[in-house]
Design a protein around this nucleic acid. Structure first.
Lengths: 142, 142, 142, 142
DNA sequence: GTGGTCTAGACCACG
DNA sequence: GTGGTCTAGACCACT
């Protein structure tokens, strides 16, 4: 399962294979991609120093435009998550510490339970996401 | 400053007080509102036959444009969640069965745990929402 | 000299008339525009609350693409200089205090002297700008 | 780790020590370098006949790519500022007369005043540079 | 009619 | 071959 496209791409081919873009979702593509990359750093799949695929390569992989990927990389660079070197490539840089594996597992388990409960009740994923957003803000303000 | 203009508005004032709109979120306002209304029907706060506030009233409450509320009502009517009666008002109609209270409580508990774990790891709410979306699709396709 | 294009545009037509874009300069267009807008806020020509021209209008005025203007507005919003309201328009927002008129006059006078001395010596404007950049960093690090 | 590989490098080591490259500036590296070399000729630090460092040496000193230095040397040769002799080296050649020391001092003083005033007003160096560019063109056209 | 997103594609700066 | 900028133009979200 080793990709031989080029060294940079091979490094994270597996990691970024998990990225899924829903073009018909209400959420803009660049937000989906940015948040999923952030998520992979928390998950520990992407770690500081790891090379990211080139803008064009990732665009092809995801079936989106290179400019869109470029915007995401730029936004994440401003945020300190990525570092772009002109003529060289893009690298994971200031990613926050990855979660401990058991913490991430715990989070994932809860997420799957939320999904099961929500789906059983006939909810949509957007509905559950909204529930997260609302409660997130409430508990922050509380 | 409680509005007593008509019974419809008074009827669900409490219920819709929980709706929160984030204008700066990536998610469009009309999606936020629609999904939150859906959520309230699952929660049992909005039940079949309940009168909804008028388009204008809700727009004022939420500080958003009346056209946006109008669109949401229209979408939810197409979806069978609301029923608009010309000259009379808008009512909750084909809402799915509300969840059993203990089921909703269980869901809410899991959601709060997800929020706690995610926030502890330094995640954003959008990041967790993306995690929900991704895992939702994966478990559906599995 | 009052422009009657529309209220928003009229408000700053005079102010933004000073903006000059050099498409063949080494400096990217979006940097030129962003810095010149910033400059106008320091100069006091653009003040908090002032409406900016629409993205498309300014693009036409400057003979550049709307996406380029859009990027500038977005960057300045992130920086807190502008505030964009969807469907409404863009406004000057968190601009720092404009300079006192005599301070600005003093700055402008010095700038004109620098230009005169540089030009007399056969320098290019880019050369003088580099001199500014170098000395700026040196005096900051000192 | 002072290089003594050849006399050319040693000759201007001090002069070129003042060159500063900002990789994250909006201005392309090759423009920064070219203008700074030009500036050093006006300043009188680099004089006709002076040997320049080899392309590779300067690239290492500045931490930039040799191709970039090479391009600058080529551009400056076309411009008549440098002369490249195959197999021998690169020399300052058609540089304009260096400024009289007191003139340069006057320019430098004004520049420092501009920097002080601009910084006090909360400006960025790019903002001041834009001011120079704009006023430069205006006073040229006037 | 506002800003926002996305695309396709050209050309440039840099290594 | 990398990222960066810019353009032209379509379509969408929102007021």
């Amino acid at each position: 399962m080793v990709s031989l496209v080029n060294d940079a791409d091979a490094g994270v081919a597996g990691a970024l294979a998990h990225v899924k873009i829903d073009k018909s979702a209400g959420v803009p593509i660049y937000v989906q991609l940015a948040e999923q990359i952030r998520l992979l750093t928390h998950e520990g799949v992407l770690r500081n120093g790891d090379p990211m695929p080139t803008v064009r390569t990732l665009a092809v992989w995801l079936g989106i435009n290179a400019n869109t990927v470029s915007r995401v990389y730029r936004d994440l660079q401003v945020d300190g998550v990525l570092r772009m070197e002109r003529g060289v490539g893009t690298f994971v840089d200031g990613a926050s510490q990855p979660m401990k594996q058991r913490d991430f597992k715990a989070l994932e388990d809860k997420v799957l339970e939320v999904i099961r409960l929500g789906r059983d009740a006939g909810m949509t994923s957007a509905e559950v996401s909204q529930m997260i957003e609302i409660r997130w803000k409430e508990s922050r303000d509380a």
